[in-house]
Amino acid sequence: MELNCYIVDAFTRERFHGNPAAVCALDKWLPDDLMQSIAIENNLSETAFVVRDGERWHLRWFTPGGEIDLCGHATLGTSFVLKTFVAPGAHRFVFRTMKNELVVTEADGRYTMQFPAYGLKPVSVTDAMTEATGARPREAYLARDLLLVYDDERIVREMTPDQAKLKELDGLLVHVTAPGSAFDCVSRSFAPKLAVPEDPVCGSGHCHIVPYWTKRLGKNTIHAYQASRRGGELWCRQDGASVELSGDAVLYSKATLHL
């Protein structure tokens, strides 16, 4: 069996920046263990698999460490692949996922995604957080992931966390964030529990990050920067229980998988 697999750099217009996602557009589902093996072989933070479901699309995401329930950059990458190679006349995509129905719209090459916002629960700042990240956060919040807030963006940009100690913290991923000088906020995202030391630009992470900064800054729009080595920009808006994430994408490669 042969299968097309695309790699798309998401949240950027420049190749080798943003967050690379692998996307496989399928006629029918592959066995779960095969999809997991493909994700491990790709060795990217996410590999997306999508199957047409009537007027909608059924979308699943696999990390090298297992399937997850929400991923922003691979949803953007999937929309780009569908728009470019599968349904070029479409400007709106509705995805059925493990937990939610997600809507993505495209206009002039920019993709806007409607995602659920996570409800953040304040938690105590601990010595374990300081030891894992190398700096003591001023605040900490927990939802699906752990969000740690710092006062200085240099701390976030220069952070070299201890991956083993990050694994011991609560939450699936760990996001660190601070106010930015050129952006409303800068952030980074770490996912050692999913065998991903750092997610270059994390869409689902901004479903934690945006609710925090809109409340703190007193406005509902956020221009965010993910300060990983690759870097990426997100234009974000809080709309009640939803977060709107907008970004660009560029194709890096198209490959044929021999399965």
Results as ranks from 00 to 15, higher is better:
Cys236His: 04
Tyr212Phe: 12
Gln238Trp: 14
Val210Glu: 03
Asp248Leu: 07
Ile209Tyr: 03
His223Ser: 10
Arg237Tyr: 13
Gly232Arg: 05
Arg229Asp: 15
Ala224Gln: 00
Ser253Val: 11
Gly231Ile: 01
Gly240Gln: 09
Trp213Ala: 09
His208Gly: 00
Arg229Cys: 07
Gln226Phe: 03
Gln238Arg: 14
Arg230Trp: 05
Tyr252Gly: 00
Leu234Asp: 04
Trp213Phe: 13
Ala241Val: 10
Gln226Asn: 04
Val243Pro: 04
Val243Trp: 05
Cys207Tyr: 03
Cys207Lys: 05
Glu233Asn: 15
His206Tyr: 15
Gly247Asn: 06
Lys219Val: 05
His206Ala: 04
Leu245His: 04
Leu245Asn: 01
Asp239Cys: 12
Arg237Ile: 12
Leu251Tyr: 12
Thr221Ile: 11
Gln226Val: 03
Ile209Phe: 06
Gly247Ile: 07
Leu251Asp: 12
Gly240Trp: 00
Ile209Gly: 00
Ile222Gln: 07
Val210Phe: 00
Trp213His: 11
Ser228Trp: 02
Gly232Val: 02
Arg216Glu: 15
Trp235His: 09
Gly231His: 01
Val243Gly: 07
Gly247Lys: 07
Gly205Asn: 03
Gly247His: 09
Asn220Asp: 14
Leu217Glu: 06
Gly218Gln: 10
Asp239Val: 15
Asp239Gly: 00
Pro211Phe: 00
Cys207Glu: 07
Ile222Trp: 11
